Simulated scan of single mutants.
Amino acid sequence: MTRQDPPRRPTGYPRTGPGPLDRWYEAAGVRTGVRRLFHEEAERGKVFFPTALVPYVRHEAVAGLPPAHLGELTVRHLYQFLISTTHLETRIVNEAAEPVANNRSGLDLPASLRMDAFKVYCDEGYHALYSLDLADQIAAVTGIEVPDWDYGGFVGRLQEAGRSLLPDAPALAGILQAVVFETLITAVLNEVPGDTTVVGTVRDLLRDHARDEGRHHRFFCLLFQELWTRLDTTDRIRAAQAMPAMIRTALTWDLQPVRASLLLAGLDAPTAEEVLRDCYGGDTGDRRINDIARSTLKLCASVGAFDLPGVRETFAAQGLGHPEEEAS
């Protein structure tokens, strides 16, 4: 990363008001939380994941399956979310937080921001731990095993996207990948805690996670703004043009575990492929990606990324638009 043009502006961290993690010692889940324990007898009659957030259970080819098979599908969908979280937190977010925390990013960041990066690192390791813990508890009590599938395939694809888009700037690629993930608005963390039809332990765990992630969202927004002031015009264009593919990859659901779960539920291979095409393809996927990415797109717009040469076209090529223009 070079820093000659435009000149670096003094920013400080945070720019205004209290820092996003100032009360970490009093508020972070890893400091104050309790272990969430699953008790089947207290959860009978509830679902493990909201059916509204499992697109394929409403498909006509799936809806006719025996109720027990439908129930197992939602449990395995929860497993996919939980185990994917362990990969995301440790392989994407912490891979970006560590160089920032240890001052290996090449950005000459203030000590207060570096210490906040260490707080994020602690949080994310804890999120990975309790996600795996809950999946293991549910499997032990229900007898529905966590299948030995690759739940981190999407992380590998995102890492490969970073390497191909910014091959000579791994630290920049890693930070951008983490910014994308940590500023996305996920329906799961926002909607599940208030859904009383869902198993209480799942709701409590996702509520715990959402509280921490709200602080992380602000941290990564500030980190992105600090990063932006330290890039010259050429690197700003490179960073902005890398973002759309990262967003698209981050929000493209990992279909291999879904496919395997549908086959395990009794669908034949051609029918399973039809379900995947109907539920995850075409315009439906594009609309979902723009809706969930709105906060990330606004962050890009706030630093003027869309005004750089070729950037709007690069976003458009990935089915993403300027947030104000999409809203109008």
Rank of each mutant, 00 (worst) to 15 (best):
G153P: 07
G153R: 14
V155E: 12
G156T: 10
R157L: 10
E160C: 02
G162C: 12
S164F: 02
L165K: 12
L166Y: 11
L166V: 07
L166M: 10
L166F: 10
P167Q: 08
P170R: 04
L172K: 08
A173D: 02
I175G: 01
L176N: 03
L176H: 08
L176Q: 09
V180A: 13
V180I: 13
F181C: 07
E182M: 00
T183Y: 10
L184P: 06
L184W: 03
V188E: 15
V188I: 13
N190C: 12
P193V: 09
G194I: 00
T196F: 06
T196Y: 09
V199K: 04
V199Y: 09
D204F: 07
L205F: 05
H209K: 05
E213W: 05
E213M: 06
G214L: 12
R215F: 06
F219Q: 08
F220D: 09
F220T: 01
L223D: 10
F224K: 01
Q225K: 15
Q225I: 07
L227F: 05
L227W: 02
T229Q: 15
D232A: 04
R238T: 03
A239L: 09
A239C: 06
A240D: 01
Q241Y: 00
A242N: 02
P244V: 04
A245P: 00
M246T: 05
I247L: 15
I247G: 07
I247C: 07
R248D: 15
R248C: 11
T249P: 08
T249G: 00
T249L: 06
T252S: 15
W253E: 14
D254Q: 15
L255Y: 04
L255P: 11
V258A: 09
R259H: 15
A260T: 11
L262V: 00
L264K: 13
A265M: 07
A265I: 03
G266F: 04
D268T: 09
A269E: 14
P270K: 02
E273K: 07
E274R: 15
E274S: 13
E274Q: 14
Y280N: 10
G281A: 13
G282S: 09
D283S: 09
D283F: 13
T284C: 03
G285D: 15
G285I: 01
G285H: 15
R287S: 12
R288E: 13
N290A: 14
N290C: 13
D291V: 15
